[in-house]
Simulated assay, not measured.
Amino acid sequence: MKFAVIVFPGSNCDLDMYHAVKDELGEEAAYVWHDETSLEGFDAVLLPGGFSYGDYLRSGAIARFSPIMKAVEKAAAEGKPVLGVCNGFQVLLEAGLLPGAMRRNAKLTFICKQTELEIKNKSTMFTTGYADEETITIPVAHGDGNYYCDETTLKKLKDNNQIVFTYKDDINGSVANIAGITNENGNVLGMMPHPERAVDDLLGSADGLKLFQSIVKYWREQHAITS
């Protein structure tokens, strides 16, 4: 399986994402610069954290217009796994691939710490390696991670089982303690915590590795069905 790691000017978690896939997961990965226009040959797309374009205007607002995003949208429409982490989540929101928006953290401070999450949907292609309501430890590092949506959107997220991760505690003011959501089709996941920084016990947790393993398991099952 081959993963594309999208690199925007200002990305700073692309190395972590590459390491998680290449060294810990044992799958193929390649960096794709923001001005590329094709993702042909890739089976999954990863949008890493950082400060794309310096977070000018809003986090992810300029990256949304990068040439590569048309290819990301195409990959999402084709049903390929698309994962956006932290700034990558913000980009997916700005691009309209996920509903809602990000605001400054409720206390207006940057948060960087290990965080406990609860698995709210273990049936997605990203979470089959987890158990229902399992508590996992994944680090966060963000200043604009306060997820917001209106009541209508929140109801839709709940009704469609699109809420995948929630914080056990209110760390940033996010609506319903949401830490990660998918699109309606379940193949686009955005999350503020960093699973790529939790792939080895030496890093404080290996709970994030199951997310990447779940993607590979899903892809192999689908490949076996269609081959």
Score class of each variant (00 low, 15 high):
residue 219 W to F: 11
residue 66 S to R: 07
residue 213 Q to N: 09
residue 209 L to K: 11
residue 132 D to I: 00
residue 132 D to S: 11
residue 220 R to N: 13
residue 204 G to L: 00
residue 19 H to L: 03
residue 75 A to Q: 12
residue 122 K to V: 12
residue 167 Y to F: 15
residue 125 M to T: 01
residue 120 K to R: 15
residue 50 G to E: 06
residue 139 P to D: 09
residue 130 Y to N: 09
residue 161 N to P: 00
residue 100 G to R: 04
residue 114 Q to D: 12
residue 120 K to A: 07
residue 137 T to S: 13
residue 217 K to H: 14
residue 153 T to Q: 06
residue 163 I to M: 04
residue 15 L to G: 13
residue 185 N to C: 07
residue 12 N to P: 03
residue 6 I to G: 02
residue 180 G to K: 12
residue 23 D to W: 00
residue 43 D to A: 12
residue 24 E to W: 09
residue 205 S to G: 05
residue 132 D to Q: 11
residue 150 D to T: 05
residue 111 I to F: 00
residue 197 R to G: 03
residue 222 Q to E: 15
residue 117 L to G: 04
residue 136 I to D: 05
residue 168 K to M: 10
residue 68 I to N: 07
residue 179 A to M: 09
residue 43 D to W: 04
residue 159 D to Y: 01
residue 37 T to P: 11
residue 98 L to V: 11
residue 87 N to S: 09
residue 185 N to W: 00
residue 175 V to C: 06
residue 95 A to M: 13
residue 181 I to C: 02
residue 172 N to I: 00
residue 18 Y to A: 12
residue 106 A to T: 11
residue 24 E to V: 04
residue 145 G to C: 06
residue 50 G to P: 02
residue 225 I to F: 11
residue 218 Y to F: 15
residue 8 F to C: 02
residue 128 T to D: 13
residue 70 K to E: 15
residue 87 N to I: 10
residue 214 S to L: 07
residue 92 L to V: 09
residue 35 D to I: 12
residue 164 V to H: 05
residue 78 E to S: 05
residue 33 W to T: 10
residue 86 C to F: 03
residue 52 S to K: 03
residue 48 P to H: 10
residue 30 A to T: 02
residue 124 T to R: 05
residue 90 Q to V: 13
residue 222 Q to S: 12
residue 120 K to N: 14
residue 7 V to F: 02
residue 34 H to S: 12
residue 32 V to P: 01
residue 37 T to A: 13
residue 216 V to I: 13
residue 32 V to T: 05
residue 153 T to N: 01
residue 169 D to E: 13
residue 52 S to W: 06
residue 222 Q to T: 15
residue 89 F to R: 04
residue 165 F to N: 05
residue 35 D to H: 15
residue 56 Y to L: 07
residue 226 T to F: 05
residue 168 K to H: 01
residue 130 Y to F: 15
